[in-house]
């Protein structure tokens, strides 16, 4: 789809949030006049250091916080519109699960909040538990779960309604490298299925791997915004990578290049990234399970009144 014809799914204009104390005195201005547009089908990354206002922005998009000024439209509706909510999936920074529920009960509970019929809810719950690899712990209370396990329940919960818009606040926090790899693959797969994703992170590598477009916030102000490829291109540098070149050949190629261009050529022996090494060592089943979620792609939104 050409860029210009894409529908905006999230739009904010002049968004501000001032937190106040008990006596209504302003304590901090967390978001300062933010203009943001996330288009249909995009994977959008919101970056920024701690306390830059990422979570605050997301909570305003979801109607959990009221903007002090500015306009928010999500899925062409105000943030507290239930029709829009029916098509949104949200994973908060901290999962905030009910500790006395099991993952199965948790997912059934959230499915019921979407008004999903019981049969459908049971089926989807099962599929999601398989997807996040928690079948073996499906009937233990989540209160005793490790951070990463709880995170997986949170993620499954965000997908219960097969959302058209997925909002993930630091989705990879607390996950092991395999888990984060899976989440990233999942995000890519969802995006291919047409889901719009807004995610925040301060793990730049994560964002770089999956996002089409990013915005960088600092102390509530938008510092940069654009396509990752464009933001990161270094127009005056070129890099070649050749496998299986021995020392003398490499030296010869380098000499040739330097002679031709009259510039210094840097030669490197790139190491495998630690992430790739870890994945090779700990690879489970040698498979990328995240793609097991194919059945969710393109499923109709769950709420019967939409």
């Amino acid at each position: 789809m050409p860029e210009s014809k894409r529908q905006p799914v999230i739009e904010t204009r002049g968004l501000r949030k001032v937190f106040r104390d008990f006596w209504r005195r302003p304590t901090v201005e967390a978001v300062k006049g933010l203009d943001l547009t996330v288009n249909d089908g995009e994977v959008f990354g919101l970056l920024g250091p701690n306390g830059s206002g990422k979570s605050t922005t997301i909570k305003m998009l979801l109607g959990l916080l009221r903007p002090s000024a500015g306009v928010v439209r999500v899925l062409d509706a105000a943030p507290d519109d239930t029709r829009a909510k029916a098509r949104i999936g949200y994973l908060p920074e901290v999962s905030h699960l009910h500790p006395f529920l099991t993952p199965r009960e948790t997912l059934m509970y959230y499915a019921s909040l979407f008004g999903m019929p019981r049969k459908e809810a049971v089926r989807r719950t099962h599929e999601l538990l398989v997807m996040v690899d928690l079948e073996h712990a499906a009937d233990r209370a989540v209160g005793g779960f490790s951070k990463g396990m709880a995170r997986r329940v949170g993620l499954a919960q965000a997908l219960v309604n097969a959302p058209g818009l997925l909002i993930l606040d630091e989705p990879t926090s607390g996950l092991d490298p395999i888990g984060s790899r899976e989440v990233k693959d999942l995000v890519c797969a969802l995006a291919q299925g047409g889901v719009t994703v807004l995610m925040t992170s301060h793990l730049l590598a994560d964002v770089e791997d999956v996002c089409d477009r990013v915005a960088i916030l600092e102390r509530g102000v938008l510092r940069a915004e654009g396509k990752i490829a464009e933001l990161l291109r270094q127009p005056d540098a070129v890099r070649f990578e050749v496998e299986g070149l021995d020392e003398p050949d490499a030296a010869a190629v380098r000499a040739e290049l330097e002679a031709r261009t009259g510039r210094r050529v840097r030669q490197e022996y790139p190491a495998m990234s630690l992430e790739r090494y870890f994945l090779q060592v700990v690879a489970r089943d040698g498979q990328q399970r995240a793609f097991a979620m194919a059945p969710f792609l393109g499923a109709a939104p769950a709420d019967t009144n939409s």
């Binding site: 909040l113 979407f114 009144n305």
Partner: peptide, 26 residues
């Protein structure tokens, strides 16, 4: 549509109620 809406609403109310009962019993 209205029937579906009411059924969905009943399921939401039921879900909230079951959660509260579970919270109490556990």
């Amino acid at each position: 549509d209205a029937q579906n809406g009411i059924a969905a609403s009943a399921r939401r109310i039921g879900g909230v109620a079951v959660l509260a009962v579970r919270a109490a019993l556990r």
